[in-house]
Design a protein around this nucleic acid. Structure first.
Length: 268
DNA sequence: AACGACGTCAACCGCCAGTAG
DNA sequence: ACTACTGGCGGTTGACGTCGT
């Protein structure tokens, strides 16, 4: 069986995201989470591949993303960690609350790399000057004052302390406060209450088993309401020993957020 | 005003590791 | 052990804005 392409060439939008697409993605992920990025666009009503949605959410729409210029402290930390780790952008970004790996990577390539290269060249030149000065000092004919304001040694020391200062990071590594709030507002009782209401109203297709509560569609109505279990609905029912179910259609979005087990798996 | 060079950054692409069946 | 699939990562691209001539 051929592997399905990560992005469907036909009908999938590419390029810059519109405000409407952003709104749909925010609304969906904020409420239902990222239970499956590949399936998510269908439920969120987006003509995008899952990969594109994930990227947009992670790099731009996710709460607590810090926009704007990098602070001196952030830049120092990036330079220091890049020197230590290389191009491990996600690891570096993890030390910068609110910054994404993409943002850190871009900032490195557009700004910091040049600065570091320039400083390295400057440092080499200063080292050469210092060596020359030292050789002149050790020459019997020389009587220069090496502690003067233009001393290469003091200059090099200044470079070292300002550019590669080894400041210990005091960042709070727990950058997922928004998820804490998300979980608090959507605990298990929330889901069960929500579902019990639906079931009582008998307006949706749902079924229950001992451990898990699902809301599903048997593919009898519109395409929109039968996205997950179309192909193997009967075996799915069998596998969960369904006690009862209803066959009215419901909105696809409703179904997806009731799959709370996947929800917890995503957030853990 | 027009144009090209350059900088920025959102987004895409391909690859890889982990996982489930 | 193998295959299919997913999320994540880093490299790269291209659209857009800014600046200098």
């Amino acid at each position: 069986m051929a592997r399905t392409p990560s992005c469907d060439k036909s009908g999938m939008r590419k390029g810059t995201w519109t405000a409407e697409e952003d709104r749909k993605l925010i609304a969906y992920v904020s409420r239902y989470g990222c239970w499956n990025w590949r399936q998510l666009p269908k439920f969120a009503g987006l003509a995008r591949c899952g990969k594109s949605c994930r990227l947009r959410w992670m790099n731009y729409l996710r709460p607590n993303i810090k926009r704007g210029n990098f602070t001196q402290q952030e830049e120092d930390l990036i330079i220091k960690m890049h020197k230590k780790l290389g191009n491990r952008w996600s690891t570096i970004a993890a030390e910068l609350p609110g910054r994404t790996d993409n943002e850190v990577k871009n900032h490195w390539h557009t700004s910091l790399k040049k600065r570091v290269q320039h400083n390295t060249i400057t440092n080499i030149e200063e080292t050469k000057s210092r060596d020359i000065a030292i050789s002149q000092v050790t020459t019997p004919a020389s009587s220069q004052d090496t502690n003067g304001p233009l001393s290469p040694i003091s200059s090099s020391s200044e470079f070292s302390s300002t550019t590669y200062s080894d400041q210990s990071s005091t960042h709070d590594l727990d950058d997922f406060d928004f998820l804490d709030g998300f979980i608090e507002s959507m605990d298990q009782s929330f889901w069960l209450d929500e579902l019990s209401t639906i079931v009582q109203d008998n307006t949706s297709c749902a079924f229950l088993n001992q451990d898990t509560t699902f809301l599903v569609s048997p593919n009898h109505s519109s395409n929109e309401s039968s996205l997950v279990l179309d192909n193997d609905f009967s075996s799915f029912l069998d596998s969960y020993e369904v006690d009862s179910f209803w066959t009215q259609p419901y909105e696809a979005a409703t179904m997806s957020h009731v799959l709370y087990n996947q929800q917890w798996g995503c957030l853990e």
